[in-house]
Each structure stands twice: as C-alpha cells, then as structure tokens.
Amino acid sequence: MFGAGFEGDSLPPKERWRALQWLGERTAKDPRFAVAMVEHAYYLLTGRKVLSPPKDLGDPFYDARSRAFQEQRTQVEAIANRFAKSGFNFKSVLKDWVVSDFYRADGLSTISMHPERRIEMEDLGLVRMLAPEQVERKVGAIFGQPWGKLNDQMAMLYGGIDSKEVTERAADPSGAMGAIQRILANDVACKQTALDFNRKAKDRLLFPHIEPDVLPGISSESDSKIRQTIVHLNQRILGQYDTMDSPDVDRIFQLFFGIVKDASERKGIDPRENYHCRRNLPGDALADPKYTIRAWRAVVTFLLRQPGFLYE
C-alpha cells in the first residue's frame, strides 16, 4: 500500500495533523488544478461539461469535432493562465467565461445548413433551462412575488434534484414539465394581470403606460400605446428589446387584437375578469367589459411559455 502523500511526495510526519491543508497546497501548485477549475466553472455556468477530444477516427465529423474541441481548449487554457496569474481568484474565471464567445453567443448571422459547421458550433451559447428554484426567483424578480408552487414534489416533477436519487437537473423538459410550464404561465398571468391593473399607473410593473379601456384598431394612438406596452412586457418578461414594429411585437399585437375582437363578437361573455383571477381584489376595479384585461392576461401567458422566459 502507498503511504500518505501526493504525486510521489510523502506526507511528512510533522504535517499529519494538517494533512488536508498540506494536500491543498500541493494540489493548487499542480498545473492541472487551474485547468480543472476553469472546466468546473464552465460546468457551473452552462450546466455542460467541456468538450472531450473526439476519439472515433471513422466519424465523418471527426475534423469538425476536433476543431470545436481545439477552439474550446485554447479558451480553457487562456483562462487558466489568467487564473494562475490572478493568484487563483475564482471570480476572474467566471468573468472570463462570461465575456467569452462560448458564453455570450446568442445567434448566428446566417443560417448554416452545413453539418460540419453545425457540429463546430454545437457547444456555443448558454441555452440552459432554468431549474425550479431559478424559475421561482425569476417570477419574483419580474412580478414582485414568486409563484410559490414550484417546490417539493412539484419541483421534483419539474426536473429538480434531491441529491440522493436524482443528482442532475433535467436539461430538457419532459411532457410533465411542459404541463407545469403551462400551469405556471396560466396561473402567474391570472394572479398578476388584474392585480397590476389595480395598482396606480406609476406603481405598475407590467402595464404602467396603458389602461384597460384602450382598445386595438380604434386609432393609431391607441395602437401605439398597445405596442408600447408589448415592448415593455417583452423587455420585462423576456429580457428582449424590440422596436414597436418588430415581427414579435406584431404577432403579440395580433394576439391581443384577435382576442378582443373574438370576445366582442361573442354573446354572453362575462363583463368581469375570471373570479379566480380577481379574488382578493376590489370588485369595481375589475370590470372587464371590453375583455382587454383578459386579453392582456393571454399576452402574459403567451410570454411566460417562451424559451426567453424559461431558459437562461
């Protein structure tokens, strides 16, 4: 059996009482330590391990995989060097990754249908599904209060971990998770839309620039207010900065317009917001004769089901 030690150096008897510290000092001097920490930081930030070198020489995409690996390896080594020079300040590693193309890339300038290029770019970008706790925090940040239901069993069903039987967070959504996303979108929109309209305009988080009596298709001024609100919602919920005439804003405008129009053509529509969504709010503030509050709720539901909300 080998005696206690590290890489051929035996643990001196006088250091036995602080063996762990002794090991730590030697580990940190090993050049592999900096690289390992940089790779670990990448895992923490993206949820993915760094690329391994391709092994299968018969793989038709061997060259592409090799190039992707080499590029990432160059980046890892560069960050590891700076990490060592910084006196092993882990913050510098996180900062370096965050400003790198591997983390920041969020799209391509042109569609690449060439499989080789797609393989090379396979590991670019963050694209990480939010864990249950992160979703709750995000709802809290956007709406002023968390949803409060994505915990315990529901969190497990939403791909959470218990550190015993489930040790890795779900990277992709299952059908059950898709159902929870729909429940969340419906329920959060239900609780927050009427509530927000019930606040004074200056205190509103979602609808500071519009009132429920602004209808689409009446005047350019009203349409402009609606579009301005959509731009605001896109920014607040998705972190997306749009112009008022962008295709995404157009689509949401049509969603809002279409729902208000459909409602106006139906008979027997309740002139109030859904009871469940107006509970605990003063009754007179929640009249919805033109269906606009419910149409805005549909818009918020639509946004909460987007990758821009559910992914980092």
């Binding site: 890339a105 391509l108 992709d172 898709g178």
Partner: peptide
C-alpha cells in the same frame, strides 16, 4: 432564423414538451 444549434434544439424541445 439563424439560430445556434443548441438554441434551435432547446426551442424545439420546449415546444414539443408543451
């Protein structure tokens, strides 16, 4: 649209799950 491969896959997965 020109999306990153990882982004394209994630969006398709999300839509399919829902």
């Amino acid at each position: 649209m020109p999306l990153l491969p990882r982004q394209e896959r994630a969006e398709s997965m999300l839509y399919a799950a829902q």
